[in-house]
Design a protein around this nucleic acid. Structure first.
Lengths: 215, 215
DNA sequence: TATCTGATACCCACATTAGGGGATATATAA
DNA sequence: TTATATATCCCCTAATGTGGGTATCAGATA
């Protein structure tokens, strides 16, 4: 069973040398080769690739934006980003866009064939330095979103209801109506919430509630 | 220049076969081989490895906990996790613990040597399926922390300053003092912000600002 | 039984924010 | 040269929130 591959790269030489390289593997079939991604969705619809090799820097629209569009239409297609750059933003954005692999161009000649096969078998080929960046990012992101602030403020169920209503922008009156309790009761709950969260204004409550994912 | 390697694995056969494998490379030197991690910090202090091969499942303390301790004391040491398991939690926890690579044991015989070298040169070796898991996690985490709705509300720089002060819980008075403008000016800005964000109360402003990461 | 907590409700006095105006100065764009 | 946008300031009234209390009642706990 052959594997259909499409190439997006604004450099003609690179497209051709990649094609040549791929042609050495019998089951690889280059079904499309494009110099820009302005019509990428149509192009992909036409040539129906299993795997796309996507350059990042291209005129008009970047490969990253293209991947977003393509993955939206054809989520099953695997995209391998290839670029000369390895700045954090590009790497991170590529991953978020839905790419399944990311290799630097100076690894192309030695690793491209392996990478494609790895993709095919459910792996995510990455150049070593990219893999390291990804892991580091994971670490910082994880310790950033997870940890600490998952303090338990010991809010009662009712207080949590009030709190989430507050975060949704309701006034005390509206909350009273919503929960069918009196305005004064809402006030009592809010006072308790203030105590428990150690804050002194509604805006602080809302900020703290959202940032600490209490609601 | 030789590379000092330590092994932590409760299975004696595995430790020995790894040692044997590593001994085929002249510049690799196995400086320690341990069946548990209960004294890992002391062990590491003693044998001073550059790289540690860490099994996850071990009696007493898991490899993941051990990595946390080791990286705290010796942050420059590179740790390669090796395990038969690839459930999301273990993988994710390992990465958060500070490991620089993660390979499955059934790849040990073919990939261990390459992996160690990759580590040495600043890469992060991962078995293909692990790499995929990591990328997927990144995607979900990323889309979770930076949710789409990055709508541009066209706030002016000054309005953004006011907004971020609001989110930090400051009152109009305090903001006025902070920005050295009058209370009334703060009010004017806030009015504008209300218009632009289509909201009608401070709490909504704060909630919207945080959720859409305007600030 | 006595005490505590969660949820409910009320009062008063004061502070702050909301909503409706209008005004001035400056720079930039049409 | 009018507009337009930004940033600044002011007034007044109504609505809402803040801080200090007190009180009832049910249910769990000591």
């Amino acid at each position: 069973m052959s594997l259909r591959i499409a190439i997006f790269d604004d450099n003609k030489n690179i497209r051709e040398s990649i094609s040549l390289l791929l042609s050495t593997v019998p089951q690889f079939e280059v079904v499309g080769s494009f110099s820009h991604v302005l019509d990428c969705v149509e192009d992909v619809k036409e040539c129906k690739p299993d795997i796309i090799l996507m350059d990042i820097e291209m005129p008009g629209m970047t490969g990253i934006e293209a991947v977003v569009k393509i993955k939206k239409e054809f989520p099953q297609i695997q995209v391998l980003m290839q670029t000369v750059f390895e700045d954090d933003d590009r790497v991170f954005d590529s991953i978020c866009s839905g790419a399944s692999g990311y290799i630097l161009k100076n690894f192309l000649h030695t690793k491209l064939l392996d990478s494609i096969q790895e993709l095919q078998y459910g792996g995510s080929p990455m150049s070593p330095s990219i893999a390291r960046k990804v892991l580091n990012k994971m670490q910082t992101v994880a310790t950033h979103i997870r940890p600490e602030e998952k303090i338990d403020y010991q809010l009662t169920p009712r207080e949590k209801e009030v709190l989430s209503a507050l975060v949704n922008g309701l006034s005390y009156k509206m909350i009273a109506a919503e929960l069918t309790i009196s305005y004064e009761t809402v006030r009592s709950h809010v006072k308790k919430i203030y105590e428990k969260l150690h804050v002194a204004s509604l805006t602080e409550v809302v900020a703290k509630a959202i940032n600490n994912r209490i609601v």
